[in-house]
Nucleic acid binder design. Sequence first.
DNA 1: ATGTTGACGATAT
DNA 2: AATATCGCCAACA
Length: 103
Amino acid sequence: MTDPASLNERIWLAVAAIPAGRVSTYGAVANAAGLPRGARRVGRALGALPPDSQIPWYRVINAQGRIAIPQGSKAAREQWDRLLGEGVIPDANGRIDLRRYGV
DNA sequence: ATGTTGACGATAT
DNA sequence: AATATCGCCAACA
């Protein structure tokens, strides 16, 4: 399983391991999936997720504690929605404290 | 085959 | 704190 396409599933598994109410970063997920420095690959893998997937893609944010999806997009709103629903609250700057919610 | 882009990240300025 | 650059690598405006 070394072909790029099948790596998506490995990445998805790593994302599925993030506990509810917690968040992780693209870089951290990449590491967990055995892809050091593969943060961008993680972003692509999540974008390739089927709409009906059960994978908690919304628990993945960037290393700066911000939503990586372009603000204003439908998916971005959904991500905030789901995170808030799990008790992940952003600080006054609109950023999520990774020291508190990070795994 | 070649250049650009981007759900990233680390480092330098 | 805010930009600027660079490394990374698959997809493709």
